[in-house]
């Protein structure tokens, strides 16, 4: 065993990068759920974002355009979901699951000609003085723009939901759509906007995956990231800053278990009789999610503050 080979700074930098696709998808889903809609199609929207982003970046040579089109791809798919659940009143859970299956298939089809193609590089932002500060420079100032924007997005969502009037309206729609409707708020239009925003965020997360994290396109490359994003929203108890924490935790555990394996730490533990396997580490965030669910559903007052009361319920416009 040689724990000294684990460089905590690299660990943190790797963790932040691994968490970014999750962060985007989860913060988008948080807004959707705050408006009272449960969209389980995050995985599908992410992979469509991944393929749209990659294809655009390769054809135009511009990663920036790739991110924009990736976000649009996710949003378009989300609007399909919105049309079906909000106007045609289909079941949200079933439609969301179908959206994931549809997204995976469509992405595989669109991506056929792009397998094995190289994408243009996304540059890391290099700040002249700041990036060269010994430890802090790498810890804080060594990322690409998309990572900073992700954190800014969390702040913006927090500000929007808690400090602005439209944010309050969105939450009202999510808590009690009938009351919001009787006050004259356009419930369906607000929800459609939230759904489109959620799709765009998931698409951005997917594009980050195919353009930065593993710079290539391969079928099925999201490999379950969308489901983790859904878990993070619950883990975070629908609070924006906790989404950031959750994304880092879920992303961090993957990076940590790889580091512990590579350094031989897990093997060392096993050799001294502690049978800790990498799989145990991988499942901890999910265990925590279940515990959070249990805790918030046991405590009625807290649950009513955080989980949107109308979550997953169809709204039928009357009068």
């Amino acid at each position: 065993m040689d724990l000294s080979v684990i460089d905590p700074i690299s660990l943190f930098v790797g963790l932040v990068a691994a968490a970014t696709p999750l962060l985007y998808a989860a913060i988008g889903e948080l807004v959707v759920e705050k408006s009272g809609v449960l969209n389980l199609g995050v995985e599908g929207m992410m992979i469509v974002g991944a393929v749209c982003g990659f294809a655009t970046a390769v054809t135009t040579g511009s990663p920036l355009l790739g991110f924009v089109v990736g976000a649009m791809g996710g949003a378009v798919l989300a609007l399909v979901f919105g049309g079906m659940t909000q106007y045609l009143l289909s079941n949200q859970v079933a439609t969301g699951l179908a959206l994931t299956l549809f997204g995976l298939g469509v992405a595989a089809l669109v991506g056929q000609p792009f397998t094995g193609v190289k994408s243009p590089r996304v540059a890391v932002v290099h700040l002249p003085v700041l990036s060269d500060i010994p430890v802090i420079g790498r810890l804080v100032f060594s990322y690409d723009l998309v990572i900073y924007l992700g954190i800014a997005l969390v702040a913006a969502v927090w500000f929007f939901l808690n400090r602005t009037r439209p944010g309050l309206v969105l939450r009202a729609v999510g808590e009690n759509h009938d009351a919001a409707h009787s006050l004259g708020y356009p419930v369906i239009r607000i929800r459609m906007m939230a759904i489109a925003f959620g799709g765009a965020c998931a698409g951005l997360g997917g594009a980050y995956l195919s353009l930065v994290r593993v710079p290539q396109w391969t079928e099925g490359m999201t490999a379950g990231a969308g489901w983790i994003a859904l878990a993070i929203v619950v883990f975070a108890a629908w609070k924006p800053w906790r989404v950031l924490l959750g994304a880092w935790l879920f992303g961090g555990v993957t990076i940590l278990q790889l580091n512990l394996q590579a350094s031989g730490f897990l093997s060392w533990l096993q050799s001294v009789g502690i049978p800790l396997q990498a799989q145990y580490l991988s499942m901890t965030p999910y265990l925590v999610t279940i515990i959070v669910l249990v805790v918030i559903s046991a405590d009625r007052t807290r649950a009513s503050v955080n989980a949107p009361a109308s979550l997953g319920k169809s709204f039928t416009q009357t009068g």
Binding site: V5, I6, G14, A223, L258, N259, A262, Q279
Partner: peptide, 26 residues
């Protein structure tokens, strides 16, 4: 030799992270 078990045949993101980790560790 430093061996990392990914417990998958095919997961590009995880395999990529494993590669980065191994490189970071020398």
């Amino acid at each position: 030799f430093r061996v990392v078990w990914s417990n998958t045949w095919f997961n590009p993101a995880l395999e990529g992270d494993a590669a980065k980790t191994l490189i970071e560790q020398g």
